[in-house]
Design a protein around this nucleic acid. Structure first.
Ligand SMILES: [Mn+2]
Ligand SMILES: [Mn+2]
Ligand SMILES: [Zn+2]
Ligand SMILES: [Zn+2]
Lengths: 138, 138
DNA sequence: ATACAGTTTATAATGATTCTAAACTAGTGT
DNA sequence: ACACTAGTTTAGAATCATTATAAACTGTAT
């Protein structure tokens, strides 16, 4: 595919060699219009179904951790027993649907400006994230 | 101690037998003015230092899980590798100090009103929580 | 006191994640 | 083209927070 070159550039500019495993994972994660939220296990299953040549689970972990470190993925904390990752690395907020157990992005405009009125001496704010838990009406 | 009777009532009214292990843990967790944020390991260490008779680690886990289920403790999702618990079970917000790796409560007044402008059909909002990550200046 | 469900405990099992170390590969230079 | 090296992949082992097991113990009702 011609669009591989985009991912090769992305990898190179992050100081990561464009291996065939990483390019496949890039296509799966980043070749889409909307935010993708996933767990390692979910990603690994998609890779297994999509490609004949298997990618080692260790490589999936290595790659996700490398992408996180390079700022291409973000870890989202919603469950204590499994890590969730997000292809949207911007500062943004989430709905968490407690019935479907799935994340939905919220724009800054969906939440409005958040004004933290308390400050601690010698400390600066690194990020502000809102988690809105939703569930079925009935 | 005379104030044990408060915790015995608290336990009984939750359908939990007031064992000596649970009463000790109650005193440690709930006999204080301010919110207490902790991990299992931290709680376990305090118990070890405070009391001669040891409480099994399994009992610490069992008790914290029981208190969480009964609504006396709340789990706070901060880190994917360890669970944090909070004696403040109300809907409230947090600073997370990334240097000290410690939680600090934020009042509603410290954060201001949060107005979620997006709604999903058939879904209601259960909770809104803000996590503000802070770190040392410079 | 007896009985029984609930609880504690030491220990084993689980499972997500990380580590290890050997085989493999991309990039560089010759 | 060939060789060299640092980076990468891989299967499997190790780690570690947490949960399960099952036997001993305890709170409480009768
Ligand atoms: Mn991680
Ligand atoms: Mn838990
Ligand atoms: Zn997102
Ligand atoms: Zn709190």
């Amino acid at each position: 595919m011609s669009n591989n070159s985009i991912f090769i550039k992305k990898l190179r500019s992050s100081g990561l060699r464009p291996t065939k495993q990483r390019i496949k994972i890039c296509k799966l994660l980043f070749d889409r219009k909307n935010t993708f939220h996933f767990t390692i296990n979910y990603l690994n299953n998609i890779l297994k179904n999509k490609y004949a040549e298997k990618i080692s689970l260790a490589t999936v972990y290595n790659t996700v951790n490398a992408f996180k470190k390079k700022g291409h993925l973000k870890e989202i904390l919603i469950s204590s027993d499994k890590s969730y990752y997000d292809t949207n690395v911007s500062n943004h907020h989430h709905f968490f649907d407690e019935n479907k157990r799935e994340l939905i992005d919220l724009d800054d405009k969906d939440v409005g400006k958040i004004n933290i009125k308390k400050a601690l001496p010698g400390k600066k704010i690194n990020s502000i994230e809102v988690l809105v838990k939703i569930a079925n009406n009935n």
